[in-house]
Simulated scan of single mutants.
Amino acid sequence: MKLYYAETLAPRKACAVAGYLGLPIEYVFVDLGKGDGEQKSPDYLAINPNGTVPSLVDGDRKLWEADAIICHLAQRAGSGLWPRDAQQQIDVVRWLSWNNQHLYRHGNALYFEHLIKRWVGMGEPDPSKVEEAQGFFRKHASVLDQHLTGRKWLLGDDLSVADFAVGVTLPYAKSAAIPLDEFPEVRRWHDQLNAFDSWRNPFPARPAQTAAHG
Rank of each mutant, 00 (worst) to 15 (best):
K2Y: 01
L3V: 10
Y4F: 01
Y5C: 05
T8Q: 11
A10G: 09
P11R: 01
C15I: 03
C15T: 15
G19E: 09
E26R: 02
E26A: 00
E26V: 06
F29G: 09
D31R: 08
G33C: 02
G33T: 14
G33A: 10
K34V: 10
K34R: 15
E38S: 06
K40L: 12
N48Y: 05
N50A: 08
L56I: 04
L56S: 02
V57T: 06
D58Q: 02
G59L: 01
K62P: 01
W64I: 01
A68P: 09
A68Y: 07
H72T: 02
H72L: 01
A74Y: 09
R76T: 09
R76G: 00
A77T: 01
G78H: 08
G78L: 10
G80C: 02
P83N: 08
R84K: 11
R84D: 05
R84N: 09
A86T: 14
Q89C: 10
Q89G: 12
I90G: 14
D91R: 14
V92Y: 09
V93M: 09
W95M: 11
W98I: 13
Q101L: 15
Y104P: 08
H106A: 10
N108K: 14
L110I: 07
Y111W: 15
F112M: 14
E113C: 07
I116H: 04
I116L: 14
R118T: 12
V120T: 15
G121C: 02
G121W: 05
G123R: 02
E124I: 08
D126E: 05
Q134H: 13
Q134C: 04
F136K: 15
F137N: 03
R138S: 06
D145K: 04
L148F: 14
T149H: 07
L155P: 05
A165W: 03
T169I: 14
T169S: 14
T169L: 03
A173T: 09
S175D: 12
S175N: 03
I178P: 06
I178G: 12
P179W: 07
D181P: 03
D181V: 13
E182L: 13
V186S: 05
W189I: 01
W189F: 00
Q192D: 12
L193V: 07
N194R: 11
N194D: 04
P202F: 00
A208E: 15
Q209N: 11
A211F: 14
